[in-house]
């Protein structure tokens, strides 16, 4: 099928402002959007720049805005999106070049919630025991691949560059609800600051955007409740 890709372009060495450029390409309905982008890059315009790696939705490199919604380019098929496809970099991030955005502030926020198991006791000789039910509690939030699609779809994150954002909260959830972890108070101290969890407006964009189907908003609400009930 004939497809028109309208892509937001920005070259930091030449452009003052980002602008749209359209490409007509021939694509199979079962091609991924990433394949379509590669077709443009390889055969039409080598300067088109985007991140990509695994091409099947597990590495999280190619989160971008496709027809207004944050998606992984490798998890959407051309046939499902339609003949007119508008592709932009994610909102709420600084554009480095074309579809490539600056992920550093995103990872800084991720690091701020101490995304690692904290346990002050000496580990036993065997594994630490955990019941299957306790393991199930935080199962969903272990799926996060740090692609940034949730944070980039969040209106408070767009307008407030200091907001910690849903991705960091999801990763805090993964540890706060892990029965082996003892660092909840340290994480909650971060999340209860003014740019923490309470900047969430329950817009649910993050839940829609998550390519791993993590119920992001639900996880955020669970953290708020834990903070309230445990005072």
């Amino acid at each position: 099928m004939q497809v028109t890709l309208k892509i937001l372009r920005f070259d930091p060495e030449k452009d003052k402002k980002a602008h749209f450029k359209s490409y007509e390409i021939e694509a199979d309905p079962l091609d991924r959007i990433l394949d379509a982008l590669n077709t443009v890059k390889w055969y039409k315009d080598g300067t088109l720049t985007f991140r990509r790696s695994c091409a099947h939705g597990v590495c999280g490199s190619d989160a971008m805005r496709i027809n207004g919604r944050n998606r992984l380019a490798c998890k959407e098929l051309v046939g499902d999106i339609g003949k007119k496809i508008t592709i932009e970099p994610m909102l709420g991030f600084r554009i480095l070049k074309d579809l490539v955005v600056d992920m550093e502030p995103f990872f800084e926020k991720y690091r701020s919630i101490k995304p690692y198991l904290i346990n002050y006791e000496d580990p036993p000789a065997t594994e630490r025991f955990q019941s299957a039910e306790d393991r199930e509690i935080f199962d969903e939030t272990t799926k996060c691949i740090l692609c940034g699609a949730c944070s980039g779809s969040c209106p408070p994150f767009w307008s407030n560059s200091e907001f910690i954002g849903p991705a960091a909260i999801v990763n805090a959830h993964r540890f706060i609800f892990d029965s082996r972890d003892q660092g909840s108070d340290e994480r909650i101290a971060v999340l209860s600051q003014s740019e923490g969890v309470f900047r969430c407006r329950t817009v649910y964009n993050c839940t829609d955007a998550c390519p791993r189907e993590i119920p992001v908003t639900k996880a955020i609400e669970q953290i708020k409740r834990v903070m309230l009930y445990n005072r």
Binding site: Y120, F177, R180, D181, Q182, S184, G196, M227, N230, R231
Partner: peptide, 27 residues
Amino acid sequence: TALKEPTKRSRWTRTGARPRPTNAFEL
């Protein structure tokens, strides 16, 4: 204090540490 005080058990998981937010205004 975390090293000295054993963490307390809370209601929301059977074994997890009980969180104590430092800044309660937003909450």
